[in-house]
Amino acid sequence: MRTAFVRTLLAAAQKDPSVMLITGDLGFTVLEEFRDTLPNQYLNAGVAEQNMIGVAAGLALCGKKVFVYSIIPFVTYRCLEQIRNDVCYHQLPVCVVGIGAGYSYGYQGATHHAMEDIGIMRSLPGMSVICPGDPYEAEAAVHAILDWQKPCYLRLGKAGEPALHSSALQLEIGSALQMQEGTDLTIIATGNILETAVSVTKVLEAQNIRVRLLSMPTVKPIDTHAISRAATQTKLIVTLEEHGPIGGLGSATAETLSVGNMNCQHLLLSGPATFAQMVGSQQHLRAKAGLDTESLARTILKRYQSLS
């Protein structure tokens, strides 16, 4: 996913000299081509994230479109006030690019896990939150962000996420992508766990449940129309995210259902609101959190059957 991001950004930056990429001294084997191809549009700001965001704001105030790249906790939590005051308050075209969604850095320990970032970034006024589900969505997200010209948080996995769409697509900020039509229940997934949502859908279909599958790459602004349609046309909305239960896709969906006075069952599937108690691979930590295909399908099936 991050390879698709960098490749797309490089192509866009070659056409638009106002596009800049700043890294907080990370990106080994990922950013070298950008660095070497467009040295005047590239910057390594060192291990100083607060300064990096301030510098990005200063560049944006002088006309640049800036992408700021690091591992999620470092480029969000560490410099939150700089993002809030310098970027969001001034409504600047700065995109905070966070690598390592959810348990992507599972083995590296809790300092590197990212299970609260959507909630934190979503709460910032004027900030959009975009979590691509596969490399095609990542590519489309870069184009959408360059057109958006406002503060954005782009939440990426790490590397090696499979393509789930069949070809390049258009992504409109605020719009869900319907991957499959269905009339019994709706699964809405965001980010790099979209792959699991696809496999869960197949398991449920084998049980003769007609599943509508929506990818929701933009958690903010969320697609209220797609949620409204799902609430009207299907019996159950399931939200799935590799994130804690507070403030993420599930929260955004619950807020939409509540504010819109929509009468629909909602099953919020997420990781825990606690730190992981052990390390392990992404797959291992997902399974521990009940975010593996088998556990998810079982939970959804049980809830769905309770409605019948």
Binding site: L43, Q50, N51, I53, G54, V55, A56, A57, G58, L59, A60, L61, C62, G63, K64, E81, Q82, N85, D86, Y89, H90
Partner: peptide, 21 residues
Amino acid sequence: ELSTGSLGHGLNVGTGMALCA
């Protein structure tokens, strides 16, 4: 030029402006 109030922001943003120049 810049909204301030929380200390420790201005010189960073100014650094970005000077870098642009």
